[in-house]
Structure formats: structure tokens, C-alpha cells
Design a protein around this nucleic acid. Sequence first.
DNA 1: CACATTTATTGATCTAGATCAATGCGTATT
DNA 2: AATACGCATTGATCTAGATCAATAAATGTG
Lengths: 153, 153
Amino acid sequence: MRKVKKGEILQRKGDMNSKVYIVDQGLLRSYIIDEKGKEHIYMFGSENWIVADNCEQGAPCQLYIDAIEDSNIREILKEDLMMGNPDLHAISRRLNAMQVRILLLMSSSARERYEHFLQTYPDIIQRVPQRMIASYLGITPEALSRVRKGMFR
Amino acid sequence: MRKVKKGEILQRKGDMNSKVYIVDQGLLRSYIIDEKGKEHIYMFGSENWIVADNCEQGAPCQLYIDAIEDSNIREILKEDLMMGNPDLHAISRRLNAMQVRILLLMSSSARERYEHFLQTYPDIIQRVPQRMIASYLGITPEALSRVRKGMFR
DNA sequence: CACATTTATTGATCTAGATCAATGCGTATT
DNA sequence: AATACGCATTGATCTAGATCAATAAATGTG
């Protein structure tokens, strides 16, 4: 069990941390800071919640995690959680995809989201009409058409 | 193994389905239809992806799932997946929270997202400054202030 | 093939929410 | 008590993307 003070930072972007925090008392948050210095909160975690950065296996952290209140927490290594549970890798990959999606929706422009989609799912682009890509990105087909127009000048 | 034709609907909103679809060949999608009749795609699932509605235990489905291409899929009951894995319930709850968050970000106004937050996390409201709620909702503190003003007349 | 339907593009206009700036209010800090 | 800092509110303005409408290209279907 570990006690943390309000304001204390548990994890920074870029850290090679692979811990999961269980909140016994108090309140944590996880968030990113974008290029303009603006914070985007990904999750709050109060009593009995788990706060974690679902970053990719072995990759550096994307999120900051700090305490909003004085808190009592437990730390668990992801490796230990994974132990004997190979399915958890697939789930972990999915959680990461969702985390990335949420953060993109909160902090990025239509254009940036489309560029990310292009890189991440280049195969899907070939197989579905553009209006579906737009729908997935949370924009209208017209907006996507204009984004593309802007990209190829 | 099941073969489905392009356009075939595997699941509708409101169904009491508790299956997970594994795509062996082809392409599925899951999506919602909002009050205005507009589709919002939640996920695409091509070869070796799992497509599922992470709705709450025992609750009716939120998502439609259909085939974008002729596909070969396997269906697995969630109960069978859960078998002997009690942790999966906690994970399932988290996946649901993320699914709801993504769909809200894609399809709802700042006001609707705030109202949902109020209902879902009434305790958190008391404990964090409004600017953090705004940050979680993906809007500015100014916008949240105006949403609230509009709510109490 | 001819026809209908879906899809993409483009233009004109509108709007939710962002941005910028100023003010007032609590609540720490000295 | 005085000062300062973070927070919420309000007003004025701006903008990314939505909406509406028209056209054109692509795709499917009898």
C-alpha cells in the first residue's frame, strides 16, 4: 500500500512504467497534454477503480497520472496481471486501441484523425466507402472529402 | 463456422444477444443510429478481429452489427468466454465504459455528454473542479460554464 | 443495356463550441 | 489583513465542421 499526496505525479508521458494503480482511497486522474499545452483528461479513478495506461506492450507511456486528492493506492505490475492469462494480451491491445481513439476524438482535428486512420488501418481504406470512414472518424462525408482534397493539394 | 452475406445484419439494437463474433474472412462493422437517423460506426472488424457489443451484463444491445463484405465468422457466447475468468467481468465493465464514451464523443453534444456524466459519476462532480470535468468531456471550461447556465435556466 | 441507387464532390450558409480578454470570487500564503 | 493565485463566469469574436442543396460519377439490378 502506498500513500500519495494531492498533486503527486505517479507517471509521466514517456516513462517506461508498466504498473496498474488500484485506488483504495482518494482520487487519481490520467491525462495527456497536447502540443498547445492543453490537458485532456482520459480517466478519473476513485475508490475501487483501476487507473492504468493501456499503452502498447513495451512502449513508453502516453499518459500522465497524478493524484487529485491524497490517496491510498496499490501498484501492480502488468506482467503479474498477465501471468497465465494469454487472452489478456488481445484484450490489452483492444483497450489500447480504444484509449487512442478516445484521446484522438478529444484532442485532434478531423484531418489528424484521418491521417492516423490511414496509418493504422491502411487495408480498411481500400475496402469500405468513404462515408463509412467519415462515420468512424466522427465527421460527415462532406468534411472528409474536404480533408482529403486539402491533403493532395 | 457461419457464412454471412454482405449486408446481412447479425445484431440489432435492443436484441438480447450475448455473442462475440470472430472474423475469419471478410469484414464486419458495428454502429449506432442516432435520433436523427445518422449512423456512427463504432468498429470495423476484418480478418482475425473480434467484433462485439460490450454492453452491460444482461442488458439489451446498444449496437447494430452487420457485414460489409461476404464473410466467414465464428460466434462465441460471452458466457463461455467468461468461464473461469472472474477478472473478465471487471474488464468487461471497463470496455463498456469506453464504448459508451466513444459513442458519446462521436454522436452527442457537449450538453448531452455533461448530462450523461452527471448521471453516471455524480460523486466525481463534488470532488473535482469544473475545468477538469470539461477536460474529461472534451470541451473548454467556458463551454461547460455555458452548458450549466443553460440547464438551470 | 437502361435505369435506379448509392457515393463523392463542390458551393453556400449556418452553428456549436473555441478562443481571447476582462472581471469577480474563493481560498491559500505571507 | 493584504496579496496572490486558481477558478468560474461573461462578453465578443472567430472557426472547424455541420447542414442543405445540386451535380456528377460509380455501382448495382432488372
